[in-house]
C-alpha cells in the first residue's frame, strides 16, 4: 500500500540478517517512506528480519546479483505508482541523514538522478589502493564522456525520478555491476544527474562485492559496456 510520501526506499540485501533491522531503524529516523527490501536469494533470515520491522520484502528466488535486485526494486516502485525512489545499501554504510538532501534534488526537478558522493567533502572515506585507482579511472572517464564532473561513479546511494526509474527498469539497464556505464547511458538519454555530498561509513565487516578476480572482470565489463553504449547511437535516437 502506498503511503503519504511520494517516494520509496529501495534496499537490495544479500545475507544481511544481522544488520538489516538496524539499517531500517536508522532510515525511519529520517523519513516515513515505505521501505522495500529486495532479498537477493539470501540464505539467512534477512527476509524475516526485514519483515518483522514492517518493511515490504521482495524475495528473489535465487541470487541474481546487485544490479538485478535493484532493478526489481525499480519495477516494483513503478508498478506501485511511485514518482521517486531512494536506493541505498542494506549494510548501513550509507548515512540515512542524507535521504532528504538527495530527495530534494529530484523532487524539485533539479535533476532526475541525485548521486550521493562520498568524495565531496562530507566525512573522509578511505579506499584501498587498487579500488582508489579504479574509482579515479572511471571518475575521469565518466566525467569526460558525460561532460560534467563525476566524483563517485560507484556510489549506490542515489535518488531517482520516475523518468530515471523507467530507464533502470528497462532491458537497456546493465544489471551486471551498474556503475559508470549507467551514468553514460543516462547522459545519452538526456536524463540529468547531479552529485550531492553525502557521508558514508567505512565498513570493515563488509564482504565486498569486489574481491578475487572480480575487479579484473569488472574492469573488462565496464570498458566493454561503455564502448557499446557509445556505439549504440541508433537506440538513443529512437528513444529520444
Amino acid at each position: 500500500m502506498k503511503r503519504e510520501d511520494d517516494f520509496v526506499v529501495l534496499m537490495p540485501a544479500y545475507n544481511e540478517a544481522d544488520r538489516i533491522a538496524t539499517t531500517i531503524a536508522g532510515i525511519r529516523e529520517y523519513c516515513s517512506a515505505e521501505i522495500v527490501v529486495i532479498s537477493d536469494g539470501s540464505t539467512d533470515s534477512t527476509a524475516e528480519k526485514a519483515r518483522e520491522t514492517g518493511a515490504i520484502v521482495i524475495e528473489l528466488p535465487f541470487n541474481l546479483g546487485y544490479g538485478a535486485a535493484l532493478q526489481t526494486g525499480y519495477q516494483y516502485a513503478l508498478k506501485q505508482g511511485y514518482d521517486f525512489a531512494i536506493q541505498m545499501d542494506a549494510d548501513g554504510q550509507h548515512d540515512p541523514a542524507f535521504i532528504p538532501v538527495l530527495m530534494k534534488e529530484v523532487q524539485t526537478g533539479r535533476a532526475d538522478v541525485a548521486i550521493g558522493s562520498r568524495f565531496l567533502g562530507e566525512g573522509v572515506y578511505h579506499l584501498s589502493l587498487t579500488r582508489n585507482a579504479g574509482v579515479l579511472f572511471f571518475r575521469n572517464l565518466a566525467s569526460l564522456l558525460t561532460r560534467q564532473t563525476v566524483t563517485d561513479p560507484t556510489s549506490g546511494f542515489q535518488a531517482l525520478s520516475r523518468k530515471a526509474m523507467e530507464f533502470c527498469a528497462s532491458e537497456a539497464y546493465p544489471t551486471d555491476f551498474p556503475d559508470a556505464d549507467v551514468l553514460i547511458m543516462l547522459h545519452k538519454r538526456g536524463i540529468r544527474f547531479t552529485e550531492v555530498p553525502v557521508r558514508m561509513h567505512q565498513n570493515t565487516k563488509k564482504k565486498t562485492m569486489h574481491s578475487g578476480l572480480v575487479p579484473i572482470y569488472y574492469l573488462f565489463k565496464m570498458m566493454l559496456s561503455i564502448l557499446v553504449t557509445l556505439l549504440r547511437t541508433h537506440e538513443h535516437r529512437r528513444q529520444s
Partner: peptide, 25 residues
C-alpha cells in the same frame, strides 16, 4: 539469462504484492 532474470523478478514482485494484499493495479 535475461529471460530467467525477468521471470524471477516478476515472480518475486507478484509474491510480495500478494503477501501485503496490495491492490493489483
Amino acid at each position: 539469462t535475461d529471460q530467467v532474470k525477468r521471470l524471477s523478478q516478476d515472480i518475486a514482485i507478484m509474491r510480495s504484492r500478494r503477501n501485503i494484499g496490495a491492490d493489483y493495479r
